[in-house]
Amino acid sequence: MAYEHLLETYQRPVFSIIVRMVRDHALAEDLTQETFIKAFRALESFDRSRKFSSWLFKIAHNSTIDHVRRKRVPTVSLDGTDRDEDAGWALANTAVSRGASPEDDFTRSELASDLESALVRLRPEYAEILLLRFQQNLSYEEISGILDLPLGTVKTHLYRARKALAEALEKRGWNPGVGGVERR
């Protein structure tokens, strides 16, 4: 069951990108499933000289962007920060490990949650480009191929995405302090 092995290997990375773009767990699972079904049906046309993960992420990107455009998913919640707070907290707590003290656990969870909230509040294409670059460790060229964007545009988007994320995090009160990142 080679395809089962591929599914187990790439399911979580694909899901983690999609869920941050659409900010809905159930919808992200549906889109992840759609991605793997499309990939399976197109396996014969896969060029083995290419990286499988890049090809798969491209399918995931196309499926998600199609859905976002069809449904016109808002990039910022109309009802304020509550939904994003919940989404951020939920995402951050899927794999939070226990710290040595409740305060450390809380602080780490709070920071991770705010990072997730800031990420989901970005434009989907900015969140996607950050995740492809920093979570999946893809090169600029690979990202350019996945998103069908020129290399210069990829670098520009990445720069803007970084700045937007930093700004969003600072707006949530996280600033570099003397002793560490502090919430003011």
């Binding site: 399911q11 899901f15 499933q33 793997f36 794999a95």
Partner: peptide, 29 residues
């Protein structure tokens, strides 16, 4: 920022997703 992302937990889908996907593809998990 790459280091920050490496320390951030990766969200996971439900454990049944793989099984559902394989079932839709006609595999018997």
């Amino acid at each position: 920022l790459g280091r920050v992302f490496r320390l951030l937990p990766m969200p996971a889908p439900s454990s049944a997703l793989a099984r559902r996907t394989l079932a839709r593809l006609g595999f018997d998990p």
